[in-house]
Amino acid sequence: MEDITTRSELKTYFETGDRPTQSQFSELIDAYVHLNEFNFGLSVQPTSETYRDYYDFYIANEIESSSAGHRIIKSLQSDNPQEIDNYFHVLGREVFYKKLYVKLIGGIDIEEHKPKIIIKRYKQRKRYKSGYIRKSGFYQEKPKDATGWNRKSEYVVTNKEMVLDIEPIHYFKPNSKIYKKFSPSGSLNRPGSFKYSIHSKPFLPLKLEVEILINGIAYRSQPVDLKIILGSAGETDAINYLVY
């Protein structure tokens, strides 16, 4: 990219009493990227390869008073799962899942623009004890909150094409010992909520965006919409993604 006039120098063109020239106005315009011209974004699709890991699932003894109603821990298969205070073990099983193949679109320079993939999770409308009402919609989780659920709400991009593992099982929660009755993490139990029309599999909507820095200012691309669909038709049915 050609050298551009610094912000400090541009400001000197527009001080009180100045009469900026045509070339100085041109420098001002050229110093910024028009996002329609930059046209950056993200291509996303599930990997053809299927992966698998073993997980233990726990439910809190007192869900209403617990800060986390469930726990999901990657572990080694064992007849004696780890004991966790105030939680009871409901299930241990191997989980098959897909990862995401992601590709940056447009003239994004990894070193210059420092791209990140942002994940926004769908949340239902909820009324809190304080009286505050959260509207339904897509929200980016605070990093600390996401970490508490073994999730991440943003990923640093290191290559223009990469395989992204968001460990999709952490977007679901156990409601019983029956895997196919799991529901999206954080969802309210409402009849028919988040049931994919084919085979009635539980699902969760997500939005993925690319965030880049231009002159120190963050810009985000148009989102890619997808659903994480729980593979619940059999032991080897993988958690998959529907991009739409």
Rank of each mutant, 00 (worst) to 15 (best):
K181T: 08
F182T: 00
I228K: 01
S43R: 03
P20W: 06
G69K: 03
I217N: 06
K173T: 14
L164H: 04
T50N: 09
I73E: 03
Q22K: 13
V44N: 00
I217Y: 04
I217R: 05
V210Y: 00
V243S: 04
N215F: 06
G231A: 00
P81K: 05
A60V: 05
D56S: 07
G107A: 09
Y196P: 03
W149M: 13
Y58S: 02
E235H: 05
S75E: 12
E211G: 14
L242F: 07
V243I: 15
K142V: 12
L242R: 03
R151K: 13
Y97M: 06
Y51C: 02
D56T: 02
K126L: 12
P168M: 11
K195M: 12
E64L: 12
I239Y: 00
F172N: 07
Y241N: 00
S176Q: 06
F40W: 02
L213K: 10
I178F: 09
S153W: 03
I59W: 01
A146Q: 02
S130V: 00
E141C: 11
T236S: 12
K177C: 08
I229M: 01
D109L: 05
V33K: 07
S48P: 00
G234P: 00
F182K: 00
P168R: 06
F172Q: 06
G17N: 10
K207M: 14
G41E: 07
N175T: 12
E83V: 13
L35C: 10
D18T: 08
S176I: 07
K201E: 11
Q24V: 08
V90I: 13
Y179R: 00
S67P: 11
Y54V: 04
L91V: 10
W149L: 14
L28A: 11
S153H: 05
A146Y: 01
N189D: 12
D145Q: 13
K123P: 00
I119N: 07
D237C: 09
E9Y: 08
L208A: 11
R151P: 04
L242N: 04
A68V: 08
Y171W: 10
E15N: 11
N175Y: 07
E209C: 09
R7N: 12
P223Q: 07
F25R: 04
K135A: 15
K99V: 08
Y128F: 13
K142A: 15
Y219R: 01
P191E: 06
K98N: 15
S187F: 08
A146D: 01
E62T: 04
T50F: 02
P168F: 10
K126C: 08
V243Y: 03
S78W: 12
Q124Y: 02
K129H: 10
I166Q: 08
N39M: 04
D225W: 05
L242V: 08
N86R: 12
A31R: 03
H170K: 10
L204Y: 03
T47G: 02
D145T: 12
G148H: 02
G192K: 03
S193L: 13
Y32E: 09
Y155V: 10
G137I: 08
G69Q: 08
Y155D: 10
N80Q: 14
E49P: 00
Y55C: 10
D30R: 12
N39V: 02
Q222M: 13
